[in-house]
Design a protein around this nucleic acid. Structure first.
Length: 279
DNA sequence: AGTGTATCCTGCAGGC
DNA sequence: TGCCTGCAGGATACAC
């Protein structure tokens, strides 16, 4: 999906537009985006006033007065777009799925070409429960490399799969997992528990760095991602390995490789990220 | 516990 | 030009 930096960019973009806005009306063009019947969703959301927008992992959260949240999972192609008034012309969303009409005449549109995304309303306790099943935020000040190392030490799973598991760490997807592993010099298929304390330290540092840099660049647009204003992210040209198989490694000149495991492509430099490390 | 496979869905690029 | 295959920032369910 849009991963953590893309969700963060969206949240920053919509925050001024949705804060203190009351949802006057909802319009569901694609009911499969919801997890409840359209009528139920309308009743859950209508009349609610948004406090602010925030992010948890890859999810865009709109907190409402009195507790509860509208949670948006962006899936692969989800966009959250805000407009001062109903959009028309060429700026119109291409695959609108859900619209929230606010009391000031502005509109929030969840647009999703492939419709893997979801929009749901969760009461406060349900949201707390949902969030508690997600791993720590990698950019949180309370998240440490020791914590990362200790958690990885318990898993035989390939480190790339480990990073993609939202229950283990929140917000990391295929792009930033690939980039962080490259920058840390760790082969994506190595068992998580084979990652040494020193390597975990590197991985921790590079993961946080790459996520921060990507946020600064407004995220990565491969094809579909757009921010709340419909603009592309600028991080794509900074990618070292993701989608760059066949290119020369920026560090050593070796050819970047693409392999597939767990049904996802993994990109790495065979020289900078040896699979088998000698002790 | 972990893997591979399939599924949800649309659209694009590349090969022929 | 068109047809076909493979592939895509995600998540989940299943059999093994």
């Amino acid at each position: 999906m849009p991963e953590l930096p893309e969700a963060e960019t969206i949240v920053r973009g919509i925050r001024p537009a949705v804060s203190q806005r009351q949802v006057e009306r909802t319009q569901v063009l694609r009911p499969d985006i919801l997890r409840v019947p359209t009528r139920t969703f309308a009743n859950q959301v209508r009349g609610r006033t948004i406090l602010t927008a925030s992010r948890r992992g890859k999810n865009v959260i709109m907190e409402v007065h009195g507790g509860g949240v509208i949670a948006i999972n962006l899936g692969m192609t989800g966009r959250v777009l805000t407009f001062p008034s109903p959009p028309r012309g060429r700026l119109r969303p291409t695959h609108p799925a859900v619209r929230l009409y606010f009391d000031d005449g502005s509109v929030l549109v969840f647009d999703d070409q492939r419709r893997f995304g979801t929009v749901e309303f969760l009461e406060a306790d349900a949201w707390v429960h949902r969030s508690s099943n997600m791993g720590p935020e990698p950019l949180a000040s309370t998240f440490s490399s020791r914590q990362l190392h200790a958690a990885m030490a318990r898993s035989r799973s390939p480190v790339r799969s480990w990073l993609l598991d939202q229950k283990r760490i929140a917000g990391v997807g295929n792009i930033y997992a690939a980039e962080a592993l490259f920058l840390a010099g760790v082969h994506p298929r190595r068992p998580a528990r084979s990652v040494s304390e020193q390597e975990a330290k590197e991985l921790y540092r590079e993961l946080r760095r790459v996520l921060r840099k990507a946020i600064e660049a407004g995220g990565t647009t491969i094809r579909d991602y757009r921010n709340a204003a419909g603009e592309e992210g600028r991080y794509a040209r900074r990618l070292h390995v993701y989608g760059r198989d066949g290119d020369a490694c920026s560090a050593c000149g070796s050819e970047i490789q693409r392999i597939v495991f767990s049904n996802r492509s993994a990109f790495f430099c065979p020289r900078c990220q040896p699979e088998h490390v000698s002790a």
